[in-house]
Design a protein around this nucleic acid. Sequence first.
RNA 1: GCUCUGGUGGUGGAAUUGGUAGACACGCAGGACUUAAAAUCCUGUGAACAUUGCGUUCGUGCGGGUUCAAGUCCCGCCCGGAGUACCA
Length: 925
Amino acid sequence: MDYNHIEIEQKWQKYWQNHNIFVAKEDKTKPKYYVLDMFPYPSGAGLHVGHPLGYIASDIVARYKRLRGFNVLHPMGYDAYGLPAEQYAIQTGQHPAITTEQNINRYRRQLDLLGLSYDWTREVRTCDPHYYKWTQWTFIQLFNSYYCYDANKALPISNLIKIFENGHSSELNAACGKKMDVTASQWADFSEAERSNVLMNYRLAYLSEATVNWCPQLGTVLANDEVVNGVSVRGGFPVERKSMQQWSLRITAYAERLLEGLEGIDWSESLKEIQRNWIGRSRGATLFFELENGEKLEIFTTRADTLFGVTFMVLAPEHKILDSITTEEQKAEVERYVAWAKNRSERERLAEVKAVSGVFTGSYAIHPLNGQKIPVYVSDYVLVTYGSGAIMAVPAHDSRDFAFARKFSLPVVQVVVPDGEKEEDTTAWQESKDSKNGTIINSGFITGLKVKDAIAKIIDYIEEKHIGYGTTNYRLRDAIFSRQRYWGEPFPIYYENGVPKTLNEDELPLLLPNIETYLPTESGEPPLARAKGWNHNGMPYDHNTMPGFAGSNAYYIRYMDTNNDKELCSKEANAYWQNVDLYIGGSEHATGHLLYSRFITKFLFDIGKCCKDEPYRKLINQGMIQGRSSFVYRINGTNKYVSYNLKNQYATDTLHVDISLVDNDVLDLERFKQWRAEFNDAEFILEDGKYICGCEVEKMSKSLFNVQNPDMLVERYGADTLRLYEMFLGPLEQSKPWDTKGIEGVSRFIRKFWRLYHDRDNAFCVSDEAASKEEMTALHKAIKKVEEDIEKFSFNTSVSTFMVCVNELTELKCNKREILSPLAVLISPFAPHIAEELWSLLGNETSISYAYFPKFDNKFLEQTTFNYPVSINGKTRAFIELGVDIAQAEAEKAVMENASVLKFIDNKPVKRFIFVPKRIINIVI
RNA sequence: GCUCUGGUGGUGGAAUUGGUAGACACGCAGGACUUAAAAUCCUGUGAACAUUGCGUUCGUGCGGGUUCAAGUCCCGCCCGGAGUACCA
């Protein structure tokens, strides 16, 4: 019998499971290594070949580290709350828990086929009450904390209460929605509801009336990272802005630490950059412009140097003081504008970025430095959510202000001359001059300064005059944390006379109640409002649920102590496993999960619940595997199909065809006809007797008929081959199209490997002879290279190394135990089943996972000679063979001794030798 | 627009970080074994010229530069991919 992957793989998967080979236990005598995959959302479609890419890579590292003597934690679980299961429930009435369970079982079956070395005793599911108890618990901790900038960490809310009781609130330097100045006696007189309102401004999980992204089709609000280009990431539905009472997490309090923390972690530069941009720190100044009615208008600018160029001001349509400053004459027009702006969807607004709109409020502000009257406008190009929702407009040096000024015929005053230019007449300008490299003009005491110096001088000046101060602004917004959906974690909150109260820890988890319909109520309440008799001693629970990212924030901590019912994670387990050494997953989570998880980790660190303030030490984003779609070409208006290379002779439609009907771009005509009724009587125009399909690389998707399912490949080639092939495709981090052609090469390699130790009759056959130096060299070359490659996460080259090694050994007809035994260990992280089989055939009683990675021995790689490159007149190259590893001086000596060989080159006498560093010899003829 | 990434044979991709470019694999061509096919094995495969011989020249998106030596470093372009965007 030939190499039989089905038998071998089933046998060893069973063995690993029965012997609990991969169950991790804390073991202080060994160094730990924590390898984690981003856990999947178990969708109904199951796994396609793209999913396992990261899982295989992490499994290789996990197995490799075990062989290097590390105690490895390598768990897996499911991000089980999510919209698809709930949408399905709305349509069919089936409880999302049932759908989710089915999908999880399917995922598990598919994962098991691949021979991944997960410790399944630590599995988590975000929808499991034993798990979401701790999601709710974390929320309560956030609710009971505030962020103190002086301590630069989260502190218990009880501290804050003391500060208010003692009347020290004016000294408070804390993250908040609105600064509250409350005296001790006011505090004492406050009702419970009033106190609650004050504290709510500081809590890290807080309720507030906020402008949110409302998605009517999904019936819920969405966080900023769940909205792209004005539509929802899930489903692509339009999103509106709406003011609603919502739970939020005060992630902005951690903006600076989230930025700083990036410095110390080993993530790709591009991913760090995405997070930096998302946090969006900009240094600038806050300035106050006095209005005619005496009110102060706060603005933020990064270009304080252009203060003398301000010719008007603009408020966002949602700005609070808009009502009070609008004059009687302008009132109707402003109200019309605000109403119009509000009704525009986010998508419309973004689509019409270049269209300028706005209305004069009728009011004027006073320029704080030169006392001029400046008209105040309202326009939706100013966003309420950034800065203070109001700007000073400098049309000469800001393109948006410039467009606005031209539309409303407002003056443009140049105050910066870019380097290499002269002051110009602004009426002729076609665009503003936004460059920061230039010199200030027309600006009183800062005239003549460079932009950078001018900014510093202005800030000093406004601080001195108390009209403003230097500040830092962040683009990052607080994370909206409630969803008006069913399939999510309930908030551990009830309302007593309208005041939100948390459940006690021993009342957790608050179970998700069953309901009959998963839609919002007739009055627009979230689905949980349908739960009958669901209340806390008669007091209503919060009817929102938590968003998708809630369950993944601290899941990596839960894996350390999954089955602990007393704590999120015991101190001991946390101290041992610390944080994730290697995290592998897609980059699509850059501004969502990966940011929230860092934030929650920093918070849990602050309150002493975990020992590291960064969750993921090293992160690798595996590339997407794209599909390779196949096409047939139908001649217009017929049911006739023309082969790829002849299609230009006809007018054709291009149709996707299922890739399972295509082999090597050749269409299986019979199966194509049977595929769908419309093709039953299809006719073909062939080339060379075949129908050749066209192809294109696209996203892998069911609707494009290009999904490669791993199950079929495992069945045909085996998991080991699939594992090797997915790694062989190319660098892990790179996106690449899936192409099954190459799998044959890897499959050949595996069979060749198996052949090494089987004779012609397929009987196991190894030799106890001592290995030759040549054989040892082949082995040790592979050990050295594979070790280096794994440490660099460059798995594709390791596979090549194995191929070279096995080719060499085949050539040498080497079936020696002395070579095969270490080779089995070396290959086992990549192809664990066949390696384990060989290991046991060699007579070892324990699993290969308990073996040690073969030690590389340099002596087998020593070459006796080495080709030293010789450059002649700096041009042509020649080589002299010299002993390896000899010092520079010795090399020079050797060359001189061998000089007779080199006396004539190209029939010309050698004049002299020049020795330059790095074993190079230059010869002048 | 800004930021990050890449650009190497027909294809996927290697290259010890400045030292013989194209490892390994796919594909293709030729051959062996077969009645035949599959499977397997061997040979060739960057381009052009030379092919009776070891060959010669050009080649890592384009143009310059540094160096004895550049796919790799520097300057200026061109093209692709990703992220982000009325962010004041």
